[in-house]
Amino acid sequence: MPLTPLDIHNKEFGKRLRGYDEDEVNEFLDQIIKDFEMYIRENKELQNQVAALQERLDHFANIEETLSKTIIVAQEAADELRNNSKKEAQLIIKEAEKNADRIINESLSKSRKIALEIEELKKQASIYRTRFRTLVEAQLELLSGDQWDSLETREAERE
């Protein structure tokens, strides 16, 4: 058990012949008591400071742990958001490609249809031209034929 200032104060020494000067010993013990009490107070203050610093250290350790967990959660959220964004972008690209393919297919189909219509119109124009030429040739033949001359002579005879 550690020595206390009260133990020092109450300590009684036996008396002997040719012993130490009692007043000097008492003064020295008083000085020891004062110094011992001062060391005890300083020790208590230091223990209080250590406890306060330990409490602050624990507080900062908790803050550090919380921040670390928060950073991890934020990183995980950012990773998840990045992955979701990539997936969404891929879906948008696929949808755009489907729409582009559909538009291209529709355009090709319309182009083929228009090309067929143009060919049909060319055929009809050729047929019309041929029929018109045939009609004009028939009319020219009719005009240059003998029947026309006979009509002219009949009409001249009537007059």
Rank of each mutant, 00 (worst) to 15 (best):
I33G: 03
N62K: 12
A96V: 06
T66I: 07
L46M: 12
E42A: 12
R18Q: 09
E97V: 07
I127G: 02
S68Q: 11
A77W: 01
R82Y: 06
A61D: 15
F36N: 04
A78K: 09
E64W: 02
A100Y: 02
D79N: 12
I127A: 10
V50S: 08
I32Q: 03
D30E: 12
I104C: 00
R41T: 12
D23W: 03
M38S: 08
E64C: 07
M38P: 01
E65P: 03
F60N: 12
I71M: 08
N105P: 00
K98H: 04
K113V: 00
T66N: 12
R41C: 03
Q49I: 11
E37G: 05
R56Q: 12
R129S: 12
F28R: 09
K86H: 04
E80H: 08
Q47G: 04
F60H: 07
R18L: 13
T66F: 03
K122F: 01
D35C: 01
G19H: 02
S107V: 05
R102D: 13
K110Q: 11
E88N: 09
D58I: 09
S126V: 10
R129F: 04
K98V: 14
I104V: 05
L67Q: 14
L57K: 10
I114V: 15
V25K: 02
L116G: 14
Y128E: 15
T70M: 04
I118Y: 06
K110D: 07
L46G: 03
A89Q: 12
A125L: 15
F28V: 06
A77Y: 03
E95G: 09
E22R: 03
K44S: 05
S85T: 11
L121R: 15
E24L: 07
L81S: 09
N62R: 14
I40D: 14
E80W: 01
R82S: 13
R82W: 03
R112A: 13
I71D: 06
G19D: 10
Q75M: 09
M38A: 14
R56V: 05
Q31C: 02
A96G: 05
Y128I: 11
E95D: 15
E119H: 03
A74F: 01
D101E: 08
A96M: 08
A61H: 06
N26W: 00
A125S: 13
F132T: 12
K34D: 07
